[in-house]
């Protein structure tokens, strides 16, 4: 599609010309974004979690192998019955051991688990969000572009069908079929959460394709694919980022719900599993230091995604 050009400089020039306004847009978008304190806060939380996810060892007070009273392996004793009886242990700062958020009933540090679990939540949120965007956006684009044709009709009927399937129970069926691994949960979430993207992008495309520049591209003989991906898609991308952020938040909460129902991969470290474990072992109302942090962590990450998403919506769709 893009015609070959022999001259390097002119390529560069052309590229600059082409990208200049986009950079400009990005820059002004960024400055508008930073006007939203909410968005900045969201971004800050997000960055903290990314750092936790990438370098948990730097932030966590212990390794995941650490056990209260015994310290890091290899251990030179076993827990005594009296010691076991004190678990889950409330927050302790050096005496008898250091665990700022206390321990769970197995003697692992809650803060350590919290930090090591960030990776899983990040992975699920981003992967599921990205997947559902990758499915929903192109379908929405195609559906909108071919609005009122059989293509649109087919896609929309398919969306109708998927809408008729309740999200969580359907997810449970999918997980039951494919097994309880994190990957399967991500796929399951994506399969059920692209619908919104598709509908919104379709609506946006429907209005965009009436715009004059699309019309002129059509007159100039550009192919459908080119129009969709070159002319329309860049304009819906910001919107799809907004939805990606929301999908990511939704995915994180969905995984927590699955974990609550006992349908998440329990061998992985995740906040949902931490909450599930407190329920399994029966300390829901006895160990607030174990109950509250994972929920807060989940809430903050989901909120960070929402904050970023809604701030971006404001940026892309300035109202005032």
């Amino acid at each position: 599609m893009a015609t070959e050009r022999s001259d390097d400089r002119s390529t560069l020039e052309a590229a600059r010309k082409r990208w200049e306004p986009r950079f400009e847009r990005l820059r002004s978008g960024w400055s508008r974004f930073t006007e939203h304190r909410m968005g900045v806060v969201g971004l800050f939380i997000f960055v903290v979690y990314v750092l936790w996810a990438l370098f948990p060892g730097v932030f966590a007070p212990h390794s995941t192998q650490w056990v209260a009273y015994l310290g890091e392996p290899p251990f030179d004793a076993r827990l005594s019955a009296e010691q076991i009886e004190t678990l889950p242990h409330p927050p302790a700062f050096g005496d008898p051991f250091f665990a700022p958020l206390g321990t769970n009933s197995d003697g692992q540090g809650v803060l350590t688990l919290l930090i090591y679990s960030a990776y899983n939540a990040m992975y699920i949120g981003l992967a599921a969000g990205l997947l559902s965007t990758l499915v929903g956006v192109p379908l929405g684009l195609i559906s909108g572009f071919y609005g009122d044709t059989w293509i649109d009709e087919t896609i929309q009927r398919f969306v109708d069908i998927m809408y008729g399937l309740p999200f969580l129970p359907f997810l449970i069926v999918l997980v039951a079929i494919r097994g309880m691994s994190t990957t399967n949960i991500i796929i399951g979430i994506a399969v059920t959460s692209w619908l919104n993207n598709c509908i919104v992008i379709r609506g946006e495309t429907l209005s965009l394709k009436e715009r004059s520049y699309v019309e002129s591209a059509k007159v100039a003989g550009a192919s459908d694919t080119r129009i969709i991906f070159r002319h329309i898609m860049p304009n819906v991308l910001p919107l799809s980022f907004v939805y990606l952020a929301q999908d990511a938040a939704g995915a994180i909460l969905a995984q927590a719900s699955l974990a609550y129902l006992g349908l998440a991969d329990f061998t992985s470290l995740s906040w949902g599993i931490m909450l599930r474990n407190i329920q399994n072992s029966g300390y829901v109302f006895q160990a607030w230091w174990w109950l509250i942090p994972p929920g807060l962590a989940l809430m903050l990450l989901a909120a960070a995604f929402y904050f970023i998403g809604f701030s971006m919506e404001d940026v892309t769709n300035p109202q005032q």
Partner: peptide
């Protein structure tokens, strides 16, 4: 088994 059925056994198996 999934840990809600036997949480301790899950730990033990590990």
């Amino acid at each position: 088994d999934p840990p809600q059925d036997s949480p301790q056994m899950a730990k033990m198996t590990e």
